[in-house]
Measured scan of single mutants.
Amino acid sequence: MDTYKLILNGKTLKGETTTEAVDAATAEKVFKHYANEHGVHGHWTYDPETKTFTSTE
């Protein structure tokens, strides 16, 4: 398992979190669920070199 990072740049919520996942697709599902639960619906990007997802509203 690898550690993946999420950076949230929402209108009402900003911050970072991490998750352990078997691959990027699994981490993306976890992070999108997390963002949706916190009302963040933004544009998603992923940097495979740093294993970092960013959601920007």
Rank of each mutant, 00 (worst) to 15 (best):
V40M: 08
Y34W: 12
Y4Q: 03
Y34H: 03
A27T: 00
E37H: 09
V22K: 13
A25S: 09
K51P: 00
V22F: 11
Y46M: 01
E37K: 11
A35V: 08
Y4G: 04
D47F: 06
K5H: 12
H38F: 12
T56Q: 08
T12S: 11
T3E: 10
E49S: 11
V22C: 11
M1K: 13
T54R: 07
K14E: 06
P48D: 09
T12N: 13
D2H: 15
A21L: 01
H41R: 12
M1T: 11
E49F: 11
T50I: 06
H38L: 15
K5Q: 05
E49G: 11
A24W: 13
T17D: 02
L8E: 02
T50Y: 06
H33T: 13
E16L: 09
N36D: 12
Y4A: 02
T45M: 08
E20N: 10
W44N: 01
T19E: 03
D2N: 14
D2P: 07
L8A: 02
E57G: 05
A27P: 01
T54F: 11
L13P: 03
E57T: 05
S55M: 15
T18N: 05
N36H: 14
K32N: 05
K29N: 09
K32V: 07
A27S: 01
H33F: 11
T19F: 12
V30Q: 09
A35T: 06
K32P: 01
T52E: 04
L8T: 03
N9Y: 12
T18E: 08
G39Y: 04
A35S: 04
H38I: 13
F53L: 01
Y34P: 01
E20G: 04
T12K: 11
T50H: 06
H41M: 12
K32E: 05
K51V: 01
T18A: 06
A27N: 00
H43N: 13
V22E: 12
T52C: 03
V40Y: 12
S55K: 03
M1L: 14
E57S: 05
V30P: 00
V22Y: 12
Y4P: 04
K11G: 09
D47L: 04
V22D: 06
H41D: 13
D23E: 03
D2V: 11
D47H: 06
K5F: 14
V22R: 13
F53N: 00
T52G: 00
V40Q: 04
W44G: 00
